[in-house]
């Protein structure tokens, strides 16, 4: 079997560790099937030889989608943590929370605004808290598996594809969004905010 350049990263916790907010079934499918498919298809796209510009452009769409899927999910797993752990306490992110308060008023207002952005996505996509080139915090969305533009530091990402919640929440995506605040890895978010966490792919 040919080994590709990219591999599926191990989850930093057990599949059932995020319950009851994200079920073990969802985590297992999401990681071993969906994320694995992005990795497999990314490696397949990268191993293709595109010798003319037409096929190169066609390949770019595959690399963008599957590469984006690999990047986004790798970020997502790391910015989640089991509820009740030290990492999942907002106190683990003092500098980030200060910046959030300065930018959005208070943490509650930020959560409200972030949640509204997530629920406003039309179709598949992601919601992000990012730090832009000027060091300013911004909430943004990307469609499908588009990754956040280079030059912006991802602090926190939330997957709003239906496969991220449907088996447990069905159409009630608001409940998924509400629950996810219990399993945010604030320690990781703080590291990203301070530039101390580089994503290795």
């Amino acid at each position: 079997m040919q080994t590709g350049r990219y591999t599926l990263p191990a989850l930093p916790y057990a599949y059932d560790a995020l319950e009851p907010y994200i079920s073990s079934t969802i985590m297992t499918l999401h990681h071993t099937k969906h994320h694995q498919a992005y990795v497999t298809n990314l490696n397949a796209a990268l191993s293709q030889e595109a010798t003319d510009v037409t096929s190169q452009i066609a390949l770019q769409a595959q690399i963008r989608f599957n590469g984006g899927g690999h990047i986004n999910h790798s970020l997502f797993w790391k910015n989640l943590a089991p509820a009740g752990t030290g990492e999942a306490r907002v106190e683990a992110a003092p500098r980030l929370v200060q910046a959030i308060e300065e930018r959005f008023g208070d943490l509650g207002k930020f959560k409200e605004r972030f949640g509204k952005t997530l629920l406003g996505l039309q179709g598949s996509g992601w919601g992000w808290l990012v730090k832009d080139a000027e060091g300013r915090l911004e909430i943004e969305t990307t469609k499908d598996q588009d990754p956040v533009a280079s030059g912006k530091q991802v602090i926190l990402g939330v997957d709003m594809w239906e496969h991220a919640y449907y088996i447990q929440y069905y159409n009630n995506k608001a409940a998924y969004v509400e629950g996810i605040w219990n399993i945010i890895n604030w320690e990781e978010c703080e590291k990203r905010f301070l530039g101390q966490s580089a994503l290795s792919l």
Binding site: L29, H34, A37, S124, W161, E162, H163, Y166, Y170
Partner: peptide, 12 residues
């Protein structure tokens, strides 16, 4: 082809 059209039965 939205995931909600098939996911409960077919998953991925």
């Amino acid at each position: 082809a939205w995931e909600h059209a098939y996911y409960l039965q077919y998953q991925n």
